[in-house]
Design a protein around this nucleic acid. Structure first.
Lengths: 150, 150
DNA sequence: CTAGGTCCTAGAGTCGGGTCTAGATCAACA
DNA sequence: TGTTGATCTAGACCCGACTCTAGGACCTAG
């Protein structure tokens, strides 16, 4: 039932260094317990929290914000509105990211399609080519968007 | 038609520092031209490229990868397969990000809903509360997932 | 003429988020 | 018994991506 730092590292995907670092940074729900010899002991709940934690991180929440959230939770009841606000703020943030990424995806898919069709037709040399154009226009290098012109 | 670094900064949303930095890092399609007095001159195409560039950045492409892409393009025809591979790699990456973020969104929406309904019912004190539980269980602080238990 | 604003370069500093090192302790195995 | 291997602490270090500073040039308006 008790887990060593090494086991937690393996199962969480974080390094032991990162786990100690997170602890110093106050990112754990509970103060991490120690064995009599000073070694850390973790439990399943810590893994569950770490899973959430890494989700929050990978969706762009800063360690500072995660710390704030967990600190509120540690303080107990009375600040649920604050916690909710924090969650909502991050949710909005993530939704904005998704929209932005989807916009980027459209741009990229268009570019990829252009490359594909040109390569398929062996017309690759009509893609953006700075040095070629340098001989025919005053300004050597047209914008990369020229790729999409043909 | 010619743009100063200040104008480009305004219109691209990047700082003048960042623009000079990007230039040093080889992220421009063209070597940036200079006036006789040494000042940089930019053109519309640069803005268009910078727009793409910031899309790539904000979708997580590193400056190193952007540099590689623009360098390939500068070299002219013959490496279209490489460019395409680079684009596809990043596209996959972005798609993975979107999936990950959508997973996170589901988790967050669930959490937010729980807070909302509990706050609405005035039952907030049944949410995760470390100090409270500390008095009733050997291990003081259950996982934050306990929030979802009620 | 001078004051303010924009620009230049080289290089130092910052910040977030880890990562790594040194030197020590401890448990288990051959 | 001694060597491995996991752990501990404090603190140095790293990396990417900027950001800022110092010291100087230049331009334009008042």
């Amino acid at each position: 039932m008790d887990l060593s730092i090494g086991e937690v590292a393996q199962r969480s995907g974080l390094s032991v260094h990162a786990l100690r670092f997170y602890e110093r940074e106050g990112l754990f729900a509970n103060p991490v317990r120690r064995l009599s010899n000073g070694r850390r002991v973790y439990h399943e709940e810590d893994l569950e929290w770490l899973a959430i934690c890494t989700r929050l991180r990978s969706s762009g929440m800063s360690l500072a914000d995660i710390r704030q959230y967990i600190q509120l939770a540690r303080q107990g009841p009375g600040n649920e509105h604050e916690r909710l606000a924090l969650l909502r703020r991050h949710q909005d943030h993530v939704e904005a990211q998704v929209r932005e990424l989807q916009g980027t995806l459209e741009v990229m898919r268009a570019k990829v399609r252009i490359y594909e069709t040109h390569l398929a037709r062996g017309e690759a040399d009509r893609l953006w080519n700075p040095s070629h154009r340098a001989t025919t226009t005053p300004r050597p290098c047209p914008a990369p968007e020229a790729e999409e012109a043909s």
